[in-house]
C-alpha cells in the first residue's frame, strides 16, 4: 500500500472532489441536455478576473469567482439578443476576454506573487480542512435545492413552451439554475482550475448518456463516472506526481471514450 493512501493530504481533496463530483453530475446532465457546455466554460473563464480582484482586495477568492460568475450569468440570462450577434460568438468572446483580463489584473499586482498555473489548472494541495468542510456543506445544500427543483428543470430543458404553459416561471428557474452553475464553478475551481472546471460537469454527464433511460439514471451514472474519475485521477496524481486537475479530467476522458465505444458497439 502506498504511504499516501491515508494521508490527509490525499483524503482531504478526495472528499471535496467526491462531493463536487456528485453534485456536478445532475448539474452536468442539465448542461449537456441544454447544450450549454460553452456557457459553463464562459462562466469559469470570467471568474478569473473576479478571483484576481478578490486576491488583491484581500477577500476570499471564492467570493470573487462566485460574484463574477453570478453577474455574468444574470446578464446573459436577462440579455435579449438585440445586436443579432450569435450567442456562441458572445460566449467565446466573453470567455477569452475574461481570461485575459484576469491574467492582466494578476500581473499588475506585483505585491502578491501568485502562480497563475494553480488558478488555471487547480491546486488541490492548497485545500485546507475548512475548505473541505465548506465544499462538502455547500454541495449538500446545492444538492438539496437541486433535488427539489429537478423535475421542473428537466421539464424546462425538455420543452420550454410546454413547461411555461403548465405554469412554470421559466425565467426564475433559469436564473436559479445559472446561479447554481456559477456557484458550482466557483466551488470546483480549486480542484481543477478555471480552464478545466467545465469538464468536471460535461465529461461524466456525456459519458453516462448512452447508458441512461431516465433523467435520474443519467444523473446517478454520471455521478459514478465523476467519482471514479476523481478517485483514480487523484491516485494517479499522488502515485506519479501528475498535476491533479488534469489527471482527473484525463481519467474522465477515458471513461467518456470507452462509453462511446461501448455504445456504438451496442447499436
Amino acid at each position: 500500500m502506498p504511504t499516501w493512501i491515508d494521508d490527509p493530504l490525499f483524503l482531504r481533496p478526495l472528499m471535496a472532489g467526491l462531493a463536487l463530483a456528485i453534485l456536478g453530475a445532475p448539474l452536468g446532465c442539465l448542461v449537456v441536455w441544454r447544450r450549454i457546455a460553452f456557457f459553463g466554460e464562459t462562466l469559469a473563464h470570467v471568474s478569473l478576473p473576479g478571483i484576481a480582484i478578490a486576491l488583491i482586495a484581500g477577500l476570499p477568492p471564492f467570493a470573487g469567482a462566485a460574484t463574477a460568475g453570478l453577474i455574468t450569468a444574470l446578464l446573459l440570462a436577462l440579455s435579449t439578443r438585440q445586436t443579432g450577434t450569435g450567442m456562441d460568438t458572445v460566449l467565446a468572446s466573453l470567455a477569452h476576454v475574461g481570461l485575459s483580463a484576469g491574467l492582466i489584473i494578476l500581473s499588475m499586482n506585483g505585491a502578491i506573487r501568485f502562480d497563475p498555473m494553480s488558478l488555471l489548472f487547480g491546486d488541490i494541495l492548497a485545500l485546507s480542512p475548512s475548505d473541505v468542510g465548506w465544499t462538502v456543506a455547500a454541495c449538500l445544500g446545492g444538492g438539496l435545492v437541486l433535488g427539489i427543483v429537478w423535475r421542473r428543470l428537466v421539464f424546462l430543458t425538455l420543452h420550454r413552451d410546454l413547461a411555461r404553459v403548465s405554469g412554470l416561471p421559466d425565467r426564475a428557474y433559469d436564473i436559479l439554475f445559472l446561479a447554481g452553475l456559477a456557484g458550482y464553478v466557483a466551488l470546483a475551481m480549486k480542484l481543477v482550475g478555471v480552464l478545466l472546471v467545465t469538464s468536471l460537469l460535461v465529461i461524466p454527464a456525456a459519458a453516462a448518456q448512452p447508458f441512461s433511460h431516465t433523467p435520474e439514471g443519467a444523473a446517478i451514472k454520471s455521478a459514478a463516472f465523476a467519482s471514479g474519475a476523481v478517485l483514480v485521477g487523484l491516485m494517479l496524481s499522488f502515485a506519479w506526481d501528475w498535476p491533479s486537475g488534469p489527471a482527473i479530467v484525463a481519467v474522465g476522458g477515458i471513461f467518456f471514450a470507452a462509453g462511446q465505444l461501448a455504445a456504438t458497439r451496442h447499436r
Binding site: 449537456v32 447544450r35 421539464f155 413547461a163
Partner: peptide, 16 residues
Amino acid sequence: TDPTVPISVRRFLDLP
C-alpha cells in the same frame, strides 16, 4: 430541437 434528455413517454407525461 431533438430531445436530448433520456426519458420514456410514461415519465414524460408525468412532467406537468
